[in-house]
């Protein structure tokens, strides 16, 4: 058992709990960034260098900056944070715990086939190998993803535009 795997999993789960439990939304965002960095560490351990880099650039870089920016823009802090009644929180924790229990109980006796030493290839996560697959087999989905991103950009600009009048939808 790799100690690095245990350490990264432990930190990732703790900081994921921090996202849920932190009172201040800014702390939640910082915990989420820590989670993303540990997940990038996991990707590195699995020899998926491309995903590790993209995870840090896209998630920890772009998406979390967007979250942090919106939270600071709306001036959310501990005082403005709404809370559910204790009973609802308890029920939610029970529901989430049961989901975990069911998933673990269902997967406990499943033994997924591990690696195959004869055909194993440790280089599949490298940028050049993934690039070849991406631009040969997945060229069409790749282009569709660019259209999706363009549509999302146009949509968010349109949503964010202030219109005249009392209510702006």
């Amino acid at each position: 058992m790799s100690p690095l795997f245990l350490f990264l999993s432990f930190v990732a789960l703790l900081s994921a709990l921090g996202v849920v439990l932190a009172k201040n939304p800014v702390h939640s965002v910082l915990f989420l960034i820590l989670t993303f960095f540990t997940l990038s560490g996991h990707y590195l351990l699995l020899n998926a260098q491309f995903l590790a880099a993209v995870n840090i650039i896209v998630y920890a870089g772009a998406i979390m900056v967007l979250f942090l920016f919106v939270i600071m823009f709306l001036n959310l802090n501990e005082e403005t944070e709404p809370h559910k009644p204790a009973l609802a929180k308890f029920a939610a924790a029970i529901a989430g715990g049961s989901l975990l229990l069911i998933l673990v109980a269902a997967m406990r006796n499943v033994n997924p086939v591990g690696y195959d030493p004869t055909s194993f290839d440790s280089q599949i996560g490298m940028v050049d190998r993934l690039g070849l697959v991406l631009f040969q087999q997945y060229a069409l989905p790749f282009e569709l993803a660019s259209i999706l991103l363009l549509a999302a950009m146009v949509g968010s600009v349109m949503l964010g535009k202030r219109e005249t009048g009392e209510r702006n939808f």
């Binding site: 709990l17 559910k84 989901l99």
Partner: peptide, 14 residues
């Protein structure tokens, strides 16, 4: 499961 619990527990949309 932690993510699901978070969706159920919190009230802030962000």
């Amino acid at each position: 499961a932690i993510g699901v619990t978070g969706v159920l527990v919190r009230r802030n949309a962000i």
